[in-house]
Design a protein around this nucleic acid. Structure first.
Length: 497
RNA sequence: GUCCCCAUCGUCCAGCGGUCAGGACGCGGCCCUUUCAAGGCCGAGACUCGGGUUCGAUUCCCGAUGGGGACGCCA
């Protein structure tokens, strides 16, 4: 019994879609959980649509998710090359062999003709599969036409004998497809490039792939691939078809539903462990009530037989819940580093200094837990930087004893309030002087000091303001007015009014 | 249109002939609290419909309905 070899085989025609990311994850889980190997193969046989930038970004997204592979275009390996565009001779050779052996034939049908066939079949209520027009052409005659320069694709000849193609799917059990509904698929385009369905059979065999986890949209391809494998005399891998990911309207998850790519979720400030955990839960569960799991936990417990047979609706709210959770439990220094770009974008951090990093880390408790994503952290602490005296004064005047409370506060505070206790003792003094307490005391201080009706608790907010205010110029953090200065300004504004 | 697959709270999962049908997200309420959150507690909320099989069906079978997929010189 050799160790399982799995592969994730994206085609580099855009960003990594979360549906594909989930497929990649399931491949990784199955490989890792069974002590197998995951390899990465780039299916770039569609020259028009494939780009090296897409490949780069897909690899980056996969790494960001914490998935790794032992063989691939970036790391090499004993079965390379790992880009199909670099394996062309193998496909051509195999196609020629199939033609020689009568398993494939040249097809000269023009696209327009095929389109007409298709429309006619549909109109007649028939499945629009290839008519087989070129199948009966004389092989030598076809060969002459091709060597004469005529454009031709190569089609695989589905065996005439009607029968079921049967395979045992790891998630769905036995799947049967009757050969009569399978039209002869193109295996090599007229431009000489192999068609995905053909390249895959050859590569899976050549690379010793034992298990293929892919979306259920490939299920009908599987029967064709099995037939091709049979003709080629290679042993096909075991298949596992996972259901698709849908949007809230039950249509396949697409752009109009919002973010659909891993890159977008990352850009919006979701943590990789949250996305990965969520994706795993979409169609799979360990069988008990456990939902919060690391990649390692999941790999240990993953079982393809427990993957759902039905499509799953992507639920952003649950992803966000997981993200809140992971932001809370993550190492603060890491969260701070990940959040820095958002602080820079907001203009709150101007340079990647140690002081800026420390500042973000200190300010995290004011936001984490009340915010869904890293991206939202700066706005939660915006009152540090966006505070405006006249606006704060306006809110203060609207409070019953607002001016009184703030005046007392301004009076009592002589230096920076750098921690909770400093703020509490200042508040206690204000209470003694004014007799105000509870909400009547704290709410005026809140609106005066933060300019907001609500926000993080003052125990945290006040020290955060004064610590930031104490930072020297050039610290990499934008200027912040101290609590004392804010209180004085509000008092002045109130008196002036 | 033809073929295939799927079907438990709004959503994601548990259930695999006898359960008060369980958990999570979301939602509502209460508590906590100087506010918004967070947190704790409580609550509302589902077996798509018909036929069978069975002493007994959410669970097995058939059909309908609904949803999804496939039918490309895309993957």
């Amino acid at each position: 019994m050799t160790a399982p070899r799995l592969r994730f085989a994206p085609s580099p025609t855009g960003h990594l879609h979360v549906g594909n990311a989930r497929t990649a994850l399931f491949n990784w889980l199955l490989a890792t959980g069974s002590g197998g190997t995951l390899i990465l193969r780039i299916e770039d046989t569609d020259v028009e649509r494939s780009t090296i930038e897409s490949e780069r970004s897909i690899l980056e997204d996969l790494r960001w998710m914490g998935l790794h592979w032992l063989e691939g275009p970036d790391v090499g390996g004993p079965y390379g090359p790992y880009r199909q565009s670099e394996r062309l001779p193998r496909y051509t050779e195999a196609a020629q062999r199939l033609i020689r052996e009568g398993h494939a034939y040249y097809c000269f049908c023009a696209a327009s003709m095929l389109e007409a066939d298709r429309a006619a079949a549909l109109a007649a209520g028939l499945p629009p599969k290839y008519s087989g027009r070129c199948r009966a052409l004389d092989r030598d005659a076809s060969l002459r036409r091709v060597s004469g320069g005529e454009a031709a694709s190569i089609r695989f000849a589905v065996p005439d004998t009607p029968r079921d193609v049967v395979f045992d799917d790891l998630v769905r059990g036995e799947v049967r497809v009757h050969t009569s509904i399978i039209g002869d698929p193109v295996i090599v385009r007229s431009n000489g490039r192999p068609q995905f369905i053909f390249a895959v059979v050859i590569d899976d065999a050549a690379m010793g792939i034992t298990h293929v986890v892919r979306g259920e949209d490939h299920i009908s391809n599987t029967s064709r691939q099995l037939l091709i494998a049979e003709a080629l005399g290679v042993r096909p891998p075991q298949f596992a078809h996972v259901s698709l990911v849908l949007g809230p309207d039950h249509a396949p998850l697409s752009k109009r539903h919002g973010a659909t790519s891993v890159a977008e979720f990352r850009a919006r400030g979701y943590l990789p462990e949250a996305l990965v955990n969520y994706l795993a839960l979409l169609g799979w569960s360990p069988g008990d009530d456990q939902e919060i799991m690391s990649l390692e936990d999941m790999a240990r417990r993953f079982d393809a037989r427990h993957v759902s047979h039905s499509a799953a609706v992507f639920d952003l709210a649950k992803l966000s819940w997981l993200n809140r959770h992971y932001m809370k439990v993550a190492e603060p220094s890491r969260v701070a580093a990940l959040a820095r770009p958002y602080f820079e974008r907001a203009g709150y951090v101007t340079a990647p200094t140690r002081a800026a990093q420390a500042f973000i880390e200190q300010v995290l408790p004011l936001a984490v837990g009340s915010v869904d994503r890293l991206e939202e952290i700066p706005e939660r602490i915006a009152f540090l930087f966006e505070w405006d005296a006249s606006q704060a004064a306006g809110l203060t005047r609207a409070e019953a004893d607002g001016a009184k409370a703030v005046a007392a506060f301004a009076d009592v505070v002589d230096g920076p309030l750098l921690d909770r206790d400093a703020f509490r003792s200042a508040a206690a003094k204000v209470r003694e002087r004014t007799g105000l307490k509870g909400k009547a005391l704290f709410h005026p201080l809140r609106v005066a000091l933060t300019g907001l009706e609500s926000g993080p608790e003052l125990d945290l907010a006040v020290p955060a303001i004064d610590r930031a205010a104490a930072l020297p110029d050039g610290s990499g953090v934008s200027r912040v007015a101290s609590c004392a200065a804010r209180a004085r300004a509000v008092v002045a504004a109130c008196e002036g009014a």
